[in-house]
Design a protein around this nucleic acid. Structure first.
Lengths: 110, 110
DNA sequence: TTTTTCTATCTTGTATAACCAGATAGTGAT
DNA sequence: ATCACTATCTGGTTATACAAGATAGAAAAA
């Protein structure tokens, strides 16, 4: 397993919520978008379980829509609950990044 | 489980390695240090298993030394292998922080 | 002296999460 | 027909963090 995948743990939900909050997307599209953004090794086998879990927890809603070129797509939209959760994740992320980056940059511990 | 603890996943090894790379520490001291730095809810029940795992994987070496005031302490030092692993974690962290922060900051996906 | 408090390490059990590999299926091009 | 691309989902495996508690030495307070 790559180290990258370990680092992803726990942040992936936030990333996916964030993309969905910005616009309606379906899973396959989402995986391409995350790869474009720089999260290059997030595969479908990882994304679909996350989407199902987020839906089960009421963070997002899924809706099947036909596609003009290919199989049906399941578009997801964020819920109110999902928006609240996303805000908390954003705050927690900001609180975490500072200390961790400073530690890893070899900053002396006081 | 708190969202914070989810975010910690995968980064904790790097944080601990980083502190040990800076100086010899024992577990109890390490937990205090991490709390000071801002990783406030990292308890001993979390840290000791990580230390044992890192040692088992050859990233750090432990050595028991007596204490003038209290029980014996097990000091840990980083190994060459640990330093190499830490460098990779640092690089991966830098690659991850940018995209994730931008996503969470509500940046539009292209 | 006894009790409490602080220091210090480790284990067991539990919940969550990400991944690999593969199944399933529609559409369009060669 | 066959291949390639789009699209979703599942099962089994492994890694990880955490809570709670067991164990124990040393010093201060009662």
């Amino acid at each position: 397993m790559s180290i990258r995948s370990q680092l992803l743990k726990g942040i992936l939900d936030g990333c996916i919520l964030s993309v969905i909050a910005d616009e309606s997307v379906y899973g396959y599209e989402l995986s391409k978008k995350l790869q474009q953004v720089g999260l290059s090794d997030v595969s479908e086998g990882t994304i679909y379980p996350v989407l199902l879990r987020l839906q089960k927890n009421g963070m997002i809603k899924g809706e099947m829509r036909p596609s003009a070129s290919g199989p049906n797509r399941k578009y997801y939209d964020i819920t109110e609950q999902g928006e609240e959760a996303l805000e908390i994740i954003q705050e927690e992320w900001d609180l975490l990044v500072g200390p961790v980056s400073q530690l890893l940059q070899g900053g002396e511990t006081p």
